[in-house]
Design a protein around this nucleic acid. Sequence first.
DNA 1: AGAAAAGGTGAAGTAACTTCACGATGAGGT
DNA 2: ACCTCATCGTGAAGTTACTTCACCTTTTCT
Lengths: 146, 146
Amino acid sequence: MGTPEELLDRTLLLTTLLSADMDAFSERTGLSQARIHLLWVLGAEGPVTQRALAAALGVTPRNVTGLVDGLERSGHVTREPHPDDRRALLVTPTALGAEVVATLTAGHRDLADALFGSLSAADRRRFGAMLDDVVASLVQALEEQR
Amino acid sequence: MGTPEELLDRTLLLTTLLSADMDAFSERTGLSQARIHLLWVLGAEGPVTQRALAAALGVTPRNVTGLVDGLERSGHVTREPHPDDRRALLVTPTALGAEVVATLTAGHRDLADALFGSLSAADRRRFGAMLDDVVASLVQALEEQR
DNA sequence: AGAAAAGGTGAAGTAACTTCACGATGAGGT
DNA sequence: ACCTCATCGTGAAGTTACTTCACCTTTTCT
């Protein structure tokens, strides 16, 4: 109990569970992970160009075209002309899209409370500090192997 | 600093980084995530039927057929007849496949050490305990919302 | 022996990705 | 003004990971 590998496995278990949580949301809304992710970014950044979305999502611009196509069909976003640049389009959430975003952020908050709300402030600080260390180690490990 | 939401965000960052690490491995080996996952299970369980793989991976048996097709083409596994059941096939790693599995488990160990090796035993225990609590909370949250 | 269940695959379809080519617009230098 | 070059989005074509449904073969159960 408490070996590095056990900790890693438990962390990986956590990631699978988190992804299960997202899948549940996905099922409830009928939206794919990719489209939810796009809406999430849209909620954080407000109306943006597809190019910006591609950068934020880490995918090619061409792929964003397809995702926006789907979200437009399902009535979650619209493509508005960019006021200053006639090449660009501003992807904008509709009322329905904004509603999903609101549900999304509410779910995020609820999940955070469910997971960490019961911890004492001191424990949260300790956990956060350790998490930071782990993240830093991981970033370093990633850079080294490249 | 240290609010539940910040902790969740940092945890999500950790999952992103872990997935980046897997992507890096994927790139190095030229194998997709799905095929690596299959090989990983194969490494843990030894030669098994496709049915068993489907259950372990949480996908349909039909999908496993396709994944094994790919791994067979790339020379990582073979389909051996099952000694007791002529319907079934035993997916078996080749020498190349076994090598990838070995690299995989070595990478897993190295990553665990890189992330948690520098922590004191007491810290590891504390972190593990908190991780357990968080996982338990998450499991409960998942059950409630269903 | 006969029915039902289990193992694997063909066929067909969806979604998320990619690269490459191309048309339209914007921006900078001369 | 003009030409070049970068940038925004999309059509075309292809890959991979998935799904469901139908089907054949073999095992298992009564």
